[in-house]
Design a protein around this nucleic acid. Structure first.
Lengths: 141, 141
DNA sequence: TTAGCTGCAAAAGGTTTGCAAATTA
DNA sequence: TAATTTGCAAACCTTTTGCAGCTAA
């Protein structure tokens, strides 16, 4: 149920010392609606449909706050703007360099690589933050 | 020998219908000197040390041309500017989200993942284009 | 009441573009 | 000479910031 997830997140904000404002409620709702990756502009459009005077800069600030709380993460899926999503909707992104299609892959697909990088380089992969580029099925000639 | 590699690349430019100019020669030299990833600004600094009036926009245009020729590739290693490198200096990048350290890993480390993504998703990974984020040995607490 | 948010406007950072002048082949 | 490149300035796009006013607690 989405409503309770909303309240859960707002509670996290509250207990992190934050205040519940219209803008914050709206941004979290929009993220929940988005069901995946959204960029700040689309998020703004969704929020502003109901609350026209929520400024884009406020949205960036809220996303920042949520990210600091660990509720939201963002990824760079190509040359355009970053995309944001709730951390419980996590998945890895494969982005087609030609057509821009985004393929989502589950955690366990990256797990072996992740283990190897840790063993060989002491590096803890956090593979959600950046997308992996390539060519999708239909674009690779 | 670097000089011949330079001529090789200039030949590629020529046979691609391009002209050899001071700016182009200087950018390719700077790329050869760089021995790895450089961002446009650093590249500009190197070029401008000898040719002060080569403009930054010219450098972007040349990098674009070289990329179209397949001689150069770029990657996004974090939130900052893109970094460029010659395609024969290819390697994958692991970037520490905390301290910015860049670890280079060889192709074959990514090969199993690459194979799997192709099998399961029909996706051809081109993993050089985007860096993989995480925490380096000294930063993971 | 008062710390914390927000709107606004302006700036920042990286990159791209239009155009006229310079240069290469 | 003709077509490409270049320098410059200005625009662009995404994101950040300073500040004064507003609002949740």
């Amino acid at each position: 149920m989405v409503g309770s997830r909303l309240e859960e997140i707002l509670d996290q904000l509250r207990s992190g010392g934050g205040r519940i404002t219209t803008a914050r409620r709206a941004v979290v709702s929009a993220l929940l609606e988005a069901h995946g990756h959204v960029n700040a502009e689309d998020l703004a459009a969704t929020v502003q449909a109901l609350h026209p005077d929520v400024h884009q800069s406020t949205i960036y600030r809220i996303l920042d706050d949520l990210e600091r709380l660990g509720v939201v993460d963002h990824a760079h899926l190509g040359h355009g703007p970053a995309v944001y999503h709730l951390t419980d909707q996590e998945h890895h992104h494969l982005v087609c360099e030609r057509c821009g299609a985004v393929v989502e892959v589950p955690d366990q697909t990256l797990a072996p690589l992740s283990r190897r990088l840790k063993d060989e380089y002491g590096f803890s992969l956090r593979p959600r933050h950046f997308a992996m580029a390539g060519l999708c099925r239909s674009c690779r000639a």
